[in-house]
Simulated assay, not measured.
Amino acid sequence: MKKQKNKYSHLTAIERVFLSSPAQFLLDKNLLIGNILDFGCGFGNDVKLLQKKGYDITAYDPYYFPQYPQGKFDTIICFYVLNVLFPEEQANVLMEVSSLLKPGGKAYFAVRRDIKKEGFREHYIHKKPTYQCIVKLPFKSIKAHEYCEIYEYSHYNNQRHSSNNCIFCNPYKHLTLLCESATTYAIFDGYPLSKGHVLVIPKRHVSNYFELPLKEQSACWLMVNKIQEMLNKEFAPDGFNVGMNVNKHAGQNVMHASIHIIPRYQGDAAGVKSGMRCVIPKGKY
């Protein structure tokens, strides 16, 4: 089957001489705080208009403003981006926004609610196939009407998600959250085996990874790929061990599924062999 491409998503950007309605709403509510990033800003209309009002705001768009933002931001806005992306592309945007957000910061996603038909359509001006879909996010909705909904996002470990005592359902605030998607998050291990040891954790409270729905398993591995890129850039390890513990006899201590990503460095193992085959000492079976 030929894979569909979504190479014209940038054509949905619109030129305006006034603030978008989500930007105006956040401005009126005094929610545009500190240094701000407009992620997927299109032509950058909101950025230019807010800069004129004295706001410290950076533009980023893979097509129109391709220089990737540096550092972390107090506030990130992402308006009408997710509706024109495939699911995997949507997840990537959520992960990137979460990784660019400062601890304690807020991100705001605006999505369209007036889409009647999902899929490709010919753009009425450019005559190219552009994609659109309905998007619902598992974050706090702060405004909704027939045309638009605005969601407020903060890092997973800045909230309490359940009344149980599971530390993966309610991760500690002091731990560094690397990135997050709708169903999964990644955090530095509190007791790292090596520099850069990360846990990728599904949000669903399931102890056995194999009991997760396939869609959520896929989301975990999509995040593993993203974390591997981040760790290569930050720590430049010589290799990785990636795996999971399922049930107590396999060493699982927290009864909530997780995937370990353990960077390896030359000389960090005492023996010659240090891979997955050496988890069980030779001769045990």
Rank of each mutant, 00 (worst) to 15 (best):
D56L: 10
I57E: 13
T58E: 11
T58W: 00
Y60M: 02
Y60W: 02
D61I: 00
D61N: 03
D61C: 01
Y63W: 07
Y64W: 11
Y64F: 15
Y64Q: 00
Y64G: 01
F65V: 05
P66K: 00
P66E: 05
P69L: 11
P69V: 09
P69N: 10
P69W: 06
Q70F: 09
Q70R: 15
Q70P: 06
G71R: 08
G71L: 02
K72N: 11
K72E: 14
F73H: 02
D74H: 07
D74M: 00
D74G: 03
D74R: 06
T75L: 02
T75E: 01
T75D: 03
I76S: 03
I76D: 00
I76P: 04
I77Y: 01
C78K: 00
C78F: 01
C78L: 03
C78H: 02
F79K: 00
F79S: 03
F79D: 01
Y80L: 05
Y80A: 06
V81L: 08
L82W: 06
L82R: 01
N83Q: 03
N83Y: 03
L85A: 11
P87W: 09
E88L: 13
E88A: 14
E89H: 08
E89A: 14
Q90W: 06
Q90L: 07
Q90T: 13
Q90A: 08
N92I: 09
V93F: 05
V93A: 00
L94E: 04
M95S: 12
E96S: 12
E96A: 07
V97S: 07
V97Q: 08
S98W: 13
S98I: 09
S99K: 07
S99I: 06
L100D: 01
L100Y: 01
L100V: 06
L100A: 02
L101E: 08
L101D: 08
K102R: 14
P103A: 13
G104H: 09
G105V: 07
G105Y: 02
G105I: 04
A107Y: 12
A107T: 12
Y108F: 15
Y108E: 03
A110E: 15
A110I: 07
A110M: 12
V111L: 09
V111M: 12
V111H: 13
R112G: 10
R112Q: 15
R113G: 13
D114A: 08
D114W: 10
K116F: 11
K116E: 15
K116R: 15
K117A: 08
E118S: 15
E118P: 06
G119T: 07
F120I: 00
F120H: 01
F120C: 00
F120M: 00
R121E: 14
R121A: 12
R121C: 10
E122K: 14
Y124C: 10
I125T: 14
H126M: 05
H126D: 12
H126Y: 15
K127D: 12
K127C: 04
P129N: 04
P129C: 05
P129Q: 06
T130E: 13
Y131W: 11
Q132G: 14
Q132V: 12
Q132T: 14
Q132P: 09
I134S: 14
V135T: 06
L137G: 03
L137P: 00
F139V: 05
F139I: 08
F139Q: 07
I142E: 08
I142P: 07
K143V: 12
K143G: 04
A144D: 14
A144V: 13
